Computed example of a mutant assay.
Amino acid sequence: MTELELLLWFFASALLAGGVAVLLVASVFAVAAARLTKAVSAMLAPTSTADPAAIRDVETHLADLRNAPRIDSGVVRRVVPEERRGASDSWFGRRPGVRFDVALPLESPDDPVASVWVPTPDRLTGETELERVAAACGVEPSRLSDAVGRELPLTYAGDGQWVIRSPSNAAAAGTPEAELA
């Protein structure tokens, strides 16, 4: 073989290796694009059907709700003024409010307490969250410290969430939720 033939074989093999590399890269990009398209379409779909075997997870969740503690009230332990971040127009600003710590009558070594925070309203309209919680405790909004030691109606909403029920408007929208602390 002459040097010219060796050079042609080298270029032909380099061309073949380059073509294979281009096909490999193109197939990797095609697979990635297909997976991305599938993920985006799944996120944008109005409904999604899970694996039929996942019904066991739903049944387990419903059994946990059925076996959840049956509590209809707790006792307010503390009423604490507290500012929270992120509740106002600016994420850096803090919004004033009040945190109610409610003792739950659960048999637990942790002595469970549900904490609920409600924002301080700019004006009293009779429909603010703070007024609903004060009414549920049987105190005036101007006398929130009197809520300590009072019973507060609660409903277990599942997953450690407790909803404070208002006796005057039990189905009111925007009822504050308490997380088990």
Rank of each mutant, 00 (worst) to 15 (best):
L8P: 00
G18H: 04
V22L: 15
V25F: 12
V25E: 12
S27E: 15
S27L: 15
V31Y: 06
A32F: 05
A32P: 00
A32H: 08
A33M: 06
A33P: 00
R35K: 12
L36K: 03
K38N: 04
K38L: 06
S41N: 04
A42R: 11
T47K: 00
S48D: 00
T49G: 02
A50T: 05
I55V: 12
I55H: 04
R56C: 06
E59A: 15
A63K: 13
D64K: 14
D64F: 07
D72F: 08
G74T: 13
V80H: 08
P81Q: 07
R84S: 05
G86F: 02
S90C: 04
P96G: 08
G97H: 01
F100W: 08
D101N: 04
L106I: 07
A114E: 01
W117R: 03
P121F: 04
R123L: 08
L124H: 14
T125H: 06
L130A: 11
E131Y: 06
R132L: 09
V133R: 03
V139R: 05
S145W: 06
A147F: 00
A147H: 04
E151V: 08
E151C: 03
A157H: 01
Q161C: 03
S166K: 01
S168N: 09
N169H: 10
A171N: 12
A173V: 11
P176Q: 08
P176G: 09
